[in-house]
Each structure stands twice: as structure tokens, then as C-alpha cells.
Design a protein around this nucleic acid. Structure first.
Length: 477
RNA sequence: UCCCUGAUAGCUCAGCUGGUUAGAGCACAUGACUGUUAAUCAUGGGGUCCUUGGUUCAAGUCCAAGUCGGGGAGCCA
């Protein structure tokens, strides 16, 4: 008999038919009730075993974690708590699980403990839900861009350019680290390395994305990105996935519209396609928040928060307006900020971003037109000569989820800015060629995929939304 | 990297101003029960108290260094 997925059994209006299911035992109650999960849905199928006519040896092998195959009739459940159950007529143990050694128990485990057994945490309700949502979001990102005629471009993972200035990079080499070749000056001789030069893992596909956008029009990248920063936070990974759209003929306004539309689209897709998972995660988060003092609990639950985001426009304000709001806030006047806002030009700390998003506007906020001193060289300079056409999308609980800008398309302005910021222009002639030949206004942004998954799943540590997290001092599995 | 904080049974945790044989719930094993929902009841086994060094008659408990975890900050997506 062909195997039926548990999701299909539970979703079907049919009953009183024969079916074969396969999956992993979550718990075995009362010597007759198996809660079986096969990953197709967060919901378990209850199997009812006739223990009087089942060998003692078989019953003993039905343990938490064991993999089994069961055939029988799907009937309306006699007990409460589930619609259907499978009355088992034949049962086979496909893989035993030594109950004494299997680390997962039918009880709540801490996320910290599960992180240490990341190879098994897929088998928990929480993590299977998280990774189904992650999949749906990834798929929705592609759908969104493909529907609009964007071209998915595969930018390189190994790069030779170290001029992007976006933080520490991981070195890529085949040189023998115990016996490094030296040149006449005593420095490492990279001409003997695999690529004949010093190479690193990419920190961003943006610059290559711009090359493609100034020919294909609208493009996006979606791939792994690497930062060797010694960041120990709930929002940073050394290896993460980034989505970077880049659009010819877009200005900052178009850029903001696209960012907002995209976020709302993918959240909606998750709400529609992962309703059970998100309902479970919403409940999980509410339970977790019960431990917190009243003041720190969020006003909306996860489900409400997600719906709110899809139904309301994001607030759009300039850096200058944000500074005014912050400076005039009671929070600032009562000196509750660790870093008080006194003058224009300072970079915003996360406490300020959180205040704007979580206290003042209580919704996602897009901040634009930052002082040029605190932003990257490639952002388009405004007429005021002080600010650049940058945008940061800030989300409650997450902070910056998107960073982007309209790009500086004017060759001389770009070159001047690179000189001021000590970016070696001679190493980036390939990038400057886009401005030298048929330059055009364009814009783009970078979306941290895991931060999006964090927001939609309501998880609070980024290490829990990627299967195998890479962080400083941690590269297990 | 900086600040705060933690590490005791497979898991979650208690263990007071240092003191004799380190506890609980869950898990596991055995038995009972059999329409359960993290099933229930009884009994039982289970410990490198993170590591190293120090103080002391005596250290799970105090001190120092280290390792790893958690929260916050910086960097950013």
C-alpha cells in the first residue's frame, strides 16, 4: 500500500478508508495511543494500537523517536482532541530509538538545549514549524520577484575585492598555513595562491548586482553571505542568507515601495500557507511571554502583529525628522536613553530605533536621508550636500531588517566620495565602468533573510531560525 | 570585543551565613491499570556539582584564571 502523508489524512474530508502512514513517534500513551508525526504538518496523527493482539516485543519498541510504518483504517476519533485517528491493523518498526539514550522527551525543552542537539531539533514541533515557515518565505521571495519580471542573478561567493568595506571577511586560500610562501618584502606571496591573489568569501552581492541591473533592468540575488565579525548577539550570524534586489531607473521612493510590498507579500504568503505553524508559534510565544513582567510583554500576539504589518503602511520619515522626534521625546528629556540625542549628525543607537518603532509609531518604520558621514560610499548624495538617499526598514523586536539606498550614478560624485572615504578606486574600475558607460539612476536594498524569519516565526534568537547556525566559536554539525 | 549573568542526574531546577550520606519534578527501568492527550499510580536505578589552581580542619557553596551558555551593547542584514 502506498504511503499517505499525515497532512493529507488530516486535511481530507474522507473517513473509513485504508491508509498507510510512516513517521516518527512523538509519544506513546497508555500502551495504545501513538502520536505520530511525519513532518508534513505540525499536527500529529493518533494511531490506536490493539495491544491485546500485538506482540509484547513490538509494543516495547514503540518508543519516543522510533520510526514506524502503520496501516489501518482512518476513522472518526472516539476520543476528544483530534478529528481522525488510524485504527492500526499492521505495524512495522522501521527504526528503533533507545528510549534511555534519545535526548528528546515528550515535554518542553529549552531552546538552548535544543541548539546543542541541532541535528535532532527538526523533530520538535517548534523547529519543524520554524523550518516550514522558512521554506514558505524563501519560496514567496522568489514568487514575488519572478511575478514582477526580476531576474535572479547568482553573484559570486568567492571574491577578490576587499574594497567593499562591509566588515571583516573570511579568507579563502589553498596555501599551506604552516608554510606560507613569502615575497621579497617578506609579505605573504598570494601569487602562489589558488587564484593568484588574496580572496575572501562574499560579504554582499550588491556591487555585482548593480552590474547586472544596469543591463537586465530588475534583478535580485538570494544566496549565502559571510561576515567574520565577532558579533555575539541574537541578530547576527557569520553565515546567513541575503536577498538583494537592484533596480534600474528606480529612485528611493520606488525602492521603499518595493521593499514594503515585498515584505507584506511574503508575510501574507506565510499566513496563508503556514496557518497551523504560525498559530502554534503564536501560542508558543504567548506562553513564553507569560514569564516576563507585564511591562515587557507585547500588546499584540504574533498573529495580530503579522496581520497588522500586512494591513498598514509602514511609517516613512527622514533621519532629520527622527532626530527631532527623539530629541523632543519625554524619554530623552528624562534622560532615559543611555545615549542622549543632542545634535544632528549622530548615528542612531538601537535604543533609539526601538523607541521609534516600538514606542512612538508602534509599527514598521522606514528611515531615509541619513547624514553621508555614517553611510556607505555608493549612496546617492542629496542636493543639501549633507545627506544621502539611504533607507533603513526597522521592525519591532528585530531592528534593521532592510538596508538600502538609491545609488550614486554620477561618475564624478561617486569617485569624489570614494576618495574621501579612502576606497581604492583603481581596484574597482569594473564597478565604476557602470557609471562610465551609459550610467543610469538605480536603487536597491539588502534584506537579511533570517531576520525576516525571526519576525514571522516570533523566535527571538537568530540561531533558532537557521538549521545549523555559524557564530563565533560555534561551527558544529 | 565590552558590560551583566549563569554552569549541580538524560532534561528543568532547588541546595541558606562553608559542616557529616547532594535533593525534587519530568525522563528511564520494573509492575499495575487500559480511550489516553506531556496519561495515571507504586517501586527502583541514575551525579567528574564545567575545568584548573588557591584559601580552609573541612568547598557544590568562598577566591582567581580559563572554557562554554544566556541577556544587553558595538558592528550590521
Amino acid at each position: 500500500m502506498n504511503r499517505t502523508k499525515i497532512k493529507a489524512v488530516l486535511d481530507s474530508p474522507q473517513q473509513n478508508y485504508q491508509a498507510c502512514v510512516k513517521g516518527w513517534v512523538r509519544t506513546f500513551r497508555n500502551n495504545q495511543f501513538i502520536a505520530l508525526n511525519d513532518g508534513s504538518t505540525i499536527n500529529n496523527l493518533q494511531l490506536v494500537v490493539d495491544f491485546n493482539n500485538t506482540p509484547e516485543e513490538t509494543l516495547k519498541r514503540i518508543t519516543t523517536g522510533a520510526c514506524i510504518s502503520a496501516t489501518g483504517e482512518v476513522i472518526a476519533s472516539l476520543g476528544k482532541g483530534q478529528k481522525y485517528e488510524l485504527k492500526v491493523s499492521s505495524l512495522e518498526i522501521l527504526g528503533d530509538s533507545d528510549a534511555e539514550k534519545y535526548p528528546l522527551q515528550p515535554k518542553k525543552h529549552s531552546l538552548e538545549f535544543l541548539r546543542e542537539i541541532a541535528h535532532l531539533r527538526f523533530r520538535t514541533s517548534t523547529f519543524s514549524a520554524v523550518f516550514r515557515v522558512r521554506n514558505t518565505l524563501a519560496n514567496a521571495v522568489h514568487q514575488f520577484f519572478q511575478q514582477r519580471g526580476f531576474v535572479w542573478v547568482h553573484t559570486p561567493i568567492i571574491t577578490a575585492s576587499d574594497a567593499e568595506g562591509a566588515g571583516q571577511m573570511f579568507r579563502v586560500t589553498t596555501l599551506d598555513l604552516n608554510n606560507l610562501p613569502k615575497n621579497e618584502e617578506g609579505a605573504i606571496d598570494y601569487t602562489q595562491d589558488f587564484f593568484g591573489k588574496s580572496t575572501n568569501l562574499t560579504v554582499s552581492g550588491q556591487l555585482e548586482g548593480e552590474l547586472a541591473a544596469t543591463a537586465l533592468g530588475d534583478i535580485y540575488t538570494f544566496g549565502p553571505t559571510f561576515r567574520a565579525e565577532n558579533s555575539n548577539t541574537t541578530r547576527h550570524l557569520a553565515e546567513f542568507w541575503m536577498i538583494e534586489p537592484e533596480m534600474a531607473f528606480y529612485d528611493l521612493n520606488d525602492n521603499m515601495n518595493l521593499a514594503e510590498e515585498m515584505l507584506q507579500y511574503v508575510i501574507k504568503e506565510a499566513l496563508e500557507n503556514c496557518a497551523d505553524d504560525i498559530a502554534f508559534l503564536s501560542e508558543r510565544l504567548a506562553e513564553e511571554e507569560k514569564q516576563k513582567p507585564q511591562q515587557e510583554r507585547s500588546e499584540m500576539n504574533l498573529l495580530e502583529k503579522l496581520k497588522f504589518c500586512t494591513e498598514n503602511h509602514f511609517e516613512r520619515i527622514t533621519y532629520t525628522q527622527a532626530i527631532d522626534i527623539l530629541r523632543e521625546s519625554n524619554h530623552n528629556k528624562k534622560k532615559k536613553f543611555t545615549y542622549l540625542i543632542d545634535k544632528w549628525g549622530v548615528d542612531l543607537q538601537s535604543e533609539h530605533e526601538r523607541y521609534l518603532v516600538e514606542k512612538h509609531f508602534k509599527k514598521p518604520v522606514i528611515l531615509t536621508d541619513y547624514p553621508k558621514e555614517i553611510k556607505a560610499f555608493y549612496m546617492r548624495q542629496n542636493e543639501d550636500e549633507k545627506t544621502v538617499r539611504a533607507m533603513d526598514v526597522l521592525f519591532p523586536g528585530i531592528g534593521e531588517i532592510i538596508g538600502g539606498s538609491q545609488r550614486e550614478e554620477r561618475y564624478s560624485k561617486l569617485l569624489q566620495r570614494m576618495e574621501e572615504m579612502h576606497i581604492p578606486a583603481h581596484e574597482m574600475s569594473w564597478y565604476l565602468d557602470t557609471r562610465r558607460f551609459g550610467s543610469c539612476p538605480h536603487a536597491g536594498f539588502g534584506l537579511g533573510f533570517e531576520r525576516l524569519v525571526l519576525f514571522v516565526t516570533g523566535m527571538t534568537n537568530i540561531r533558532d531560525v537557521i538549521p545549523f547556525a555559524r557564530t563565533p566559536k560555534n561551527c558544529e554539525f
